[in-house]
Structure formats: structure tokens, C-alpha cells
């Protein structure tokens, strides 16, 4: 549909014969090109260190920070972690991560609703990447905007908790399509809720047929073992690929 006039003409590119106002200059540049270039720079930096990088995305309150705390606590003897925390305000999450003894840095986006590759490039200057196996980037809690911004990560991991609706993948398809892994969190609460787990998985696969789905609870510990196993495998794969 044409947003100038609302008409549903056959040619969506029509201009209503708008008068030429000046000299026309063709540009043809992708609007996310700058972010994509910076993300490619981050990726080269990460690859050079054989560093495995995840970008954790979800709505606020789905449990991203708790998953990090639990994962770091259980695996920090096995893998060297570093964490970048993204929030609009406060260093509360970085403080929670610091309490686990893992190096972390907080990025405050201010009015910004997502992390971008530029912020991450500067954020990692505060971390010692050479001694790190895996970098976890916790994005701003938002299921819309972070989907469009590549940070240079290996994979996006979406977190969806069972206290949200099972139809989240259909409501926010962009994010679930961009994610390689879906963590369905807080499954210890399932007996108390009307959350249809099978339907949720079916919706996620409808959006992204190849998505890897793991069901976890940081409270009961259920399902964490396959998540940890996947992390260890991916770290080993990344190191092997970079000859580290």
C-alpha cells in the first residue's frame, strides 16, 4: 500500500508524479551498513581470539540475568567467561554478574532500546578477551529492536519464560527468526500455569524451522545440563575452527 495516499495500486513504487525539486543523486546504501561493518569488525576481533560469543535477547523479566548467574556459577571452573550487560539505566545487572567473580562490563544505552555493534566494540575494550573462552552479551530487554542489529556474535539466543504467552514467537517473529537458540525458561512453574509448551515450540518452529529449543529452569536446575553441554561443544568448536 502507498503510504502517501493509502492507495493499493499495482506498482508500490509509484510517486504520484511528484515534481522534481532538484538534482537527483542515486545513493543505494543499506541503512544498517554502518552497524554491519562495525559488527564485522567485532566478529574479526572475536574470531582472532577464538572467542565464542552469544547475544542474549528477550523481553524484560524473562530471566536472562538469572540464567547468566546460574550458568556462570556452574561452569566458571570449566570455561573462562566474560559478560557485557546492556540496560538503559543502572549497573544492577553487572553488579549481580560481578558477584559471581566473572569479569563484566555494563553498557548503559540511555534512551536506546538495543545494543549496537559500536557500543559492543567499545564495551569489550574493558574486558580481557585473550584470556576468555566465551563472551555473553545480555541485550536490552526488548523483543523488537535488538533483532535488527548484528553485534558480531556467533548466535543470538532468545529467552522466553513460561509466564509469558506461548504465542510470543508469532507476535515477535523477527526476533525468533533471527535467533539460533530458544531457551524456554522457568519451566518449574508449568504446573501452575496455562502455558502450552508444545504449542509454543510449534510456533517457534513455524517462524524458524531450524531453531534449537531447550527447556530450562534455573530454580530446579531442570534442563540445564543440555544447555551447558551445548555451550561447551560450541566453545570447543570455535577454538578448533580458529586453531586455538
Amino acid at each position: 500500500m502507498c503510504i502517501d495516499c493509502g492507495c493499493a495500486g499495482p506498482d508500490p513504487h509509484h510517486h504520484h508524479d511528484e515534481p522534481q525539486l532538484g538534482k537527483t543523486v542515486r545513493i543505494e546504501e543499506d541503512l544498517l551498513a554502518k552497524n554491519d561493518r562495525l559488527a564485522a569488525g567485532n566478529r574479526r576481533l572475536f574470531d582472532g581470539h577464538g572467542l565464542f560469543v552469544l547475544n542474549l535477547v528477550s523481553s524484560p523479566g524473562s530471566g536472562k540475568t538469572t540464567i547468566l548467574e546460574k550458568t556462570l556459577g556452574d561452569l566458571k571452573k570449566k570455561l573462562a567467561f566474560a559478560v557485557l550487560e546492556g540496560d538503559q539505566q543502572t549497573s544492577n545487572d553487572a553488579d549481580r554478574i560481578a558477584a559471581t567473580g566473572v569479569p563484566s562490563h555494563q553498557i548503559n544505552t540511555g534512551a536506546g532500546c538495543h545494543l549496537d555493534a559500536h557500543m559492543v566494540g567499545h564495551g569489550v575494550e574493558h574486558l580481557d578477551l585473550a584470556g576468555t573462552d566465551i563472551l555473553m552479551i545480555e541485550n536490552v530487554g526488548n523483543l523488537v529492536c535488538p533483532a535488527s542489529f548484528d553485534l558480531g556474535e556467533d548466535f543470538k539466543v532468545s529467552v522466553l519464560s513460561v509466564t509469558e504467552g506461548e504465542d510470543k514467537p508469532l507476535k515477535y517473529p523477527q526476533m525468533f527468526r533471527a535467533s539460533d537458540v530458544l531457551l524456554i525458561n522457568k519451566i518449574d512453574l508449568l504446573p501452575h500455569l496455562r502455558f502450552d509448551l508444545e504449542k509454543c515450540k510449534e510456533y517457534a518452529r513455524r517462524i524458524h524451522p531450524g531453531i534449537r529449543i531447550l527447556e530450562i529452569s534455573c530454580y530446579s536446575g531442570e534442563g540445564l545440563e543440555p544447555w551447558y553441554q551445548w555451550l561447551c561443544e560450541q566453545v570447543a568448536r570455535k577454538k578448533a575452527a580458529q586453531g586455538k
Binding site: I27, E28, S148
Partner: peptide, 20 residues
Amino acid sequence: STVGDQLSGEELRIKEMEID
């Protein structure tokens, strides 16, 4: 069928401008 290959619809591009 539920499987299709997307051909367009995610463009985000500056195309041209008119200058004085």
C-alpha cells in the same frame, strides 16, 4: 505449504536524494 523462500520485504535502504 509452510515452507517458502522469502524474496523481498526486509529492505532498509537509502535509494536517492534530490539536492540543490
